[in-house]
Design a protein around this nucleic acid. Structure first.
Lengths: 187, 187
DNA sequence: CGCCGAGTTGAACTGAATCAAGAAACGTGG
DNA sequence: CCACGTTTCTTGATTCAGTTCAACTCGGCG
């Protein structure tokens, strides 16, 4: 059993047949830092899983680089709206570190969903998980101060702060890089 | 076929058996303005569909009332994180108008998911739809001005602005009520 | 060495919050 | 149907968090 199937199995138990079906359509990639998993204004045609490494989802808004999401080893990675709707999206996904990445294409996943009830369930649980993460992020942004958002990120993902350039963390938190620098200066 | 099943069928075609299974566990309610669909700090044990009417999802943050989501006829309503995790959440859901509401319990839905692959698929598509809506809302909040957010709400949901008290619209947009009043004053 | 991008620090500016009065709308009871 | 009180909305003055612009520092690297 590989790390990807293993991660999937933690959402819902998978039968031997289900695991093999999934294993037959997923692919392992060793990719360098800077590699672009999803290009902007294209359809995100696969979902990814980071066995090791680090990725960033971002877009350009009025010429400035806005970090939308950060994912590390053990996380799933996708340009989520593009993947679900199969429509182009402005978001790009790039690796911030050399990474070991698993991929499954939308097309293959649809076939598996149709063929295996248990994989359809897995898909539902994966999307549910994504929605919960997004809601937490949304709540944070809706009525917390910049300092409070930084504190929370420190508390929940302390390692990201070491590994991701500070300017990217700043736009992830929705503040200017100078502001984050000042927040940090006050312990 | 009732309005609820009809709305569900638009996500994915449902067999006669699937429709009947769903019909056997959903309930229609005529409820007054102000009725509380989901109480705060409790588990949201059902998902709702508004055949007619209007609802508001909100919570208290440092003693102030924060509107999280607004739903009108044709929308699904749920305290989403509480429903998915079956954990209590601070959010309440109340009706802003007398409404006709359909409900299905989490328990019944789980049984249907397990028994009907097509309903599991429906569940996946429902959650996916919710995630897309949330991402759009998130993007809006992440890097748009208060005025731009109001403009967008005007463009996408013009009727809400007539039907929802302005203070609730303000916190939905993430601004103080005075600020929204000033934004509106400038045409 | 000296360049270059990332981070820091400072000062001025600005969008929005806050605090504080009024004005308008609403609904409830007489 | 009107009078009154409550809630909602508006308007003004002030404050504040965070942005912007600009200069400077630091560490890595050709």
């Amino acid at each position: 059993m590989n790390a990807f199937i293993d991660a999937l199995s933690r959402f819902t138990p998978l039968s031997e047949a289900g695991q093999q079906a999934m294993a037959s359509v997923c692919h392992r990639h060793e990719l360098p830092k800077g590699y672009t998993l999803v290009q902007s204004d294209t359809v995100c045609s696969s979902i990814y899983y980071l066995e090791t490494g680090l990725s960033r989802t971002f877009y350009y808004k009025d010429g400035r680089d806005v970090t939308d999401w950060l994912s590390a080893e053990g996380d799933f990675v996708v340009s989520i709206v593009s993947f679900l709707t199969q429509q182009p999206d402005r978001r790009l996904v790039q690796l911030l570190e050399p990474s070991v990445v698993w991929s499954v294409s939308y097309r293959d996943l649809e076939i598996l969903y149709a063929g295996y009830h248990e994989l359809e369930r897995l898909g539902r649980l994966l999307v549910s998980h994504g929605l919960i993460l997004m809601q937490q992020r949304f709540d944070d942004l809706h009525f917390e101060s910049a300092a409070a958002r930084y504190e929370r990120l420190m508390a929940t993902h302390p390692t990201l702060i070491q590994r991701v350039p500070q300017g990217m963390i700043a736009s992830y938190l929705g503040v200017a890089p100078e502001t984050l620098s000042r927040i940090r200066a006050q312990h």
